[in-house]
Nucleic acid binder design. Structure first.
Length: 106
DNA sequence: AGATTGACTTGCT
DNA sequence: AAGCAAGCCAATC
């Protein structure tokens, strides 16, 4: 595979997230075989600003909370995007998280 | 070069 | 039930 780096793998998975769906850092990390490396997923997202094709707003923590919204252009942007995709977000938290959750293994 | 932080998660007490 | 600690790897100070 051309994705030798953890980051590359993360990017690939995140890019595969379907519209109107979200996933969690742990789910991605776990899918990559490093369940404890959820932080690295976050780091990858931090660098995702270099790649506009990565829907980082569709990646939240396992609680469905938009923990990384502070890293976006605007505090509301992330929440706005999710709501725009039909995801019910309230106070930086996804209401129907289980409904919109997307498992990379699927 | 060593220490600290960071968009997290899981497990034990 | 709630709080604290450890683990992951890379980047920054």
């Amino acid at each position: 595979m051309n994705d030798d780096n953890f980051f590359k793998k993360v990017y690939k998975v995140v890019r595969k997230i379907p519209y109107g769906r979200v996933t969690s850092y742990g789910a991605i990390a776990k899918y990559l075989g490093a369940a404890k490396s959820a932080r690295m997923v976050g780091w990858a997202m931090n660098a995702c600003h270099l790649d506009e094709s990565i829907p980082a707003h569709r990646v939240v923590n396992r609680n469905g909370i938009l923990t990384g919204k502070h890293h976006f252009n605007g505090i509301n942007l992330m929440e706005q995007l999710l709501v725009n995709e039909g995801i019910r977000v309230k106070d930086s938290k996804i209401i129907n998280f289980e409904e919109v959750f997307w498992n990379p293994c699927d």
